[in-house]
């Protein structure tokens, strides 16, 4: 399942997508949890009883601001969450 967390507003589309099929039985030891400086990820048991990562609810409406520090303007060349997720489950839409 592809879970898209985020929103679209007048300034653009801001979604973090998590491919839960790649997230179940994570080969990276849930590295996303610690890689994100704002600790935006958490592990939940989804509706189909799989343990997967998701973006915490309190961040889903403010992603454009919360992720800004990790974007190129913040001095990063790659996003910490995407680099940490070696199974390739995490993607940003912007």
């Amino acid at each position: 399942m592809i879970a898209n967390y985020g929103y679209k507003d007048g300034s653009g589309e801001y979604y973090i997508s998590i491919d839960t099929d790649n997230c179940i039985d994570c080969a990276a030891g849930r590295a996303c949890l610690t890689a994100c400086p704002k600790e935006m990820f958490e592990i939940i048991t989804d509706d189909y009883d799989d343990e997967v990562a998701c973006v915490k609810k309190n961040f889903t409406r403010t992603l454009a601001f919360d992720c800004a520090d990790c974007k190129p303007a913040g001095g990063y060349t790659t996003l910490p969450c995407i680099s940490a997720c070696t199974p390739g489950a995490i993607k940003h839409s912007w």
């Binding site: 399942m1 592809i2 879970a3 898209n4 929103y7 507003d9 979604y15 889903t60 409406r61």
Partner: peptide
């Protein structure tokens, strides 16, 4: 009826 992809907009 099992979800394979979703997105939600609850900001506005």
């Amino acid at each position: 009826g099992k979800v394979t992809n979703f997105l939600m907009n609850d900001k506005c």
